[in-house]
Amino acid sequence: MAVPARLRWRCRRGLLELDLILEGFLEDGWERLDEAGRAGFERLLQQPDQELQGWLLGRTQPLDPGLARTVARIRGE
């Protein structure tokens, strides 16, 4: 299944770091997500940029276990 067009646009963020990480993941990792993983990714995209930055650079951890799984997936952990 191709990446939904909506996600491509929503990976455009206010911080360059996030653009690179999220767009990179769309190219390389999204297809391998199962349904729950995809839902988790959509939910992650709804979080504020500052929060995402802390998580995706590995400085902080999301409290929500679902989000934490998605973050770990993107970070290749």
Binding site: R12, G14, D49
Partner: peptide, 12 residues
């Protein structure tokens, strides 16, 4: 706004 307002670059 082309992205959600709170994703504007000012956030950086």
């Amino acid at each position: 706004s082309k992205v959600f307002p709170t994703r504007s670059h000012t956030v950086a």
